[in-house]
């Protein structure tokens, strides 16, 4: 995960940026790709985005810091976004959030010691019918109970174990 983006992908993005009239429109796309590959966007990721698009790092940083789903600080392998908006709140979202903090042993904004999970509150996930809801990575889960949360975390852990052991 130390590499920001594979060279091949960089070349592809560069080629695309060279073709289009307004490369700025790709800022979010490139940041998302770096994040998907590297987990989060370090300063070097901002610089790389600027380089790919032929623009200045400051133009990228202005965008990267605006959106809350671009991580400019290190996060764990999986980011757990627990919804704290009104529908989830009214259906027990706070208890689920407490449960998550307890089982993971971390507070909001923190990452588990094993580097697997980062817990963040999020606004409404558009899963209000399935409240309370959370999103891990890009997958939405709900309606949640404490038991379901445990199952989901166990499943995510198992998957992570597979990918990491595969890599080693």
């Amino acid at each position: 995960m130390s590499e920001l983006l594979p060279q091949q992908q960089i070349d592809k993005l560069k080629a695309h940026a060279a073709e289009i009239e307004h490369p700025h429109e790709m800022i979010v796309d490139v940041l998302r790709e770096i994040q998907a590959h590297h987990g989060w966007v370090p300063d070097a990721g901002v610089v790389l985005t600027a380089e790919i698009l032929g623009i200045t790092p400051v133009e990228v940083e202005e965008i990267a810091t605006f959106y809350d789903k671009i991580f400019r600080q290190p996060v764990g392998k999986r980011v757990v976004h627990i919804c704290d908006s009104i529908c989830c709140w009214s259906t027990g979202g706070e208890e689920i959030a407490d449960h998550l903090q307890q089982t993971l042993g971390i507070g909001f904004g923190e990452t588990t010691a094993d580097g697997l999970f980062t817990l963040l509150p999020t606004c409404c996930l558009g899963a209000c019918g399935d409240a309370p809801a959370m999103m891990i990575g890009l997958t939405t889960y709900g309606p949640l109970t404490a038991t379901k949360v445990d199952e989901i975390l166990a499943k995510e852990r198992a998957e992570l174990a597979k990918t990491t052991s595969g890599k080693d």
Partner: peptide, 25 residues
């Protein structure tokens, strides 16, 4: 298809347009 990166204000149409252009939304 443009996939965004979070923030409710992008639903406002002119902010959305700025977002699509890669400007501050």
């Amino acid at each position: 298809l443009h996939r965004s990166a979070g923030r409710y204000i992008l639903g406002e149409e002119t902010a959305l347009i700025n977002g699509l252009e890669g400007r501050r939304p």
